[in-house]
């Protein structure tokens, strides 16, 4: 499996080359095009109950697609739904990433994906819901974001503060606490930064340069209201 980002920027696409017999999993609906040697299958990762819990709890799609080069080598084109960058990570079998529910685009068949319950405070205030994806194993992982992806490297005990709705993925070796952005409740809400996450290294945090919820709120004012 070899992957390459085409048209980097706001509207990128990933080309994944598969050797005969190789397969990848992708978010359902992510496929844009493929060689005729590629077979598309829906697969419920983690069995029916696993898939159901992922659908109900994380809001992530019920099925992942499996794209298999069953009849010879070929290539697949994948793209996310929202405008925004794509990043390719190589998982080494030791590193694990926590990924917010919309961040997963595709991955090698050898990576593992599970829904994980967050702590109550993080789930309530963190902005990515009570359940997130924990992705580990060995192989390529392709993430997408809303806006550009920015990578923050944290050395041991180094801290960084991120607005809660800008998180895409972070290594499992980091930890974070939810905090109010400013002292005093009033200031917290009036500053527009209700809650923030204080990350603590070591590890890597991927953030997105746009906030999907904020964008939704902004665009809502232009949508004509019927009646």
């Amino acid at each position: 499996m070899r992957s390459e980002i085409l048209y980097p920027g706001a509207f990128p696409m990933v080309r994944v080359e598969l050797a005969a017999g190789e397969q990848i999993k992708a978010e359902s609906g992510a496929m844009v095009g493929a060689s005729p040697t590629i077979d598309v299958e829906s697969k419920m990762e983690g069995g029916f109950l696993g898939a159901l819990s992922r659908k109900l709890l994380t809001g992530e799609k019920f099925f992942f697609q499996t794209l298999r080069a069953g009849r010879g080598p070929g290539e697949v084109l994948l793209a996310p739904t929202v405008p925004g960058e794509i990043v390719i990570l190589e998982l080494d079998g030791v590193n694990e990433y926590m990924v917010q529910k919309d961040g997963f685009l595709a991955g090698a068949d050898t990576i593992s994906i599970e829904s994980k319950m967050q702590s109550f405070t993080r789930g309530l205030m963190g902005g990515e819901g009570f359940f997130i994806l924990k992705i580990g194993g060995k192989g390529t992982l392709i993430l997408n974001s809303f806006g550009a992806i920015h990578r923050i490297d944290l050395k041991p005990d180094q801290e960084y503060i991120v607005d809660n709705s800008h998180m895409v993925a972070w290594s499992a070796t980091t930890s974070y606490n939810i905090e109010r952005a400013s002292s005093g409740w009033m200031a917290s809400f009036t500053s527009g930064e209700g809650f923030v996450c204080r990350f603590r290294g070591p590890g890597v945090v991927y953030i997105q340069s746009r906030n999907p919820g904020g964008f939704g709120a902004w665009i809502r004012q232009f949508i004509p209201v019927s009646e």
Partner: peptide, 19 residues
């Protein structure tokens, strides 16, 4: 021989060096 831990340090990658 497959790595079983992550090592962090000043000159090592921020995501940790598999070791």
């Amino acid at each position: 021989s497959s790595p079983n831990a992550l090592c962090f340090g000043y000159e090592l990658p921020a995501s940790g060096a598999p070791c």
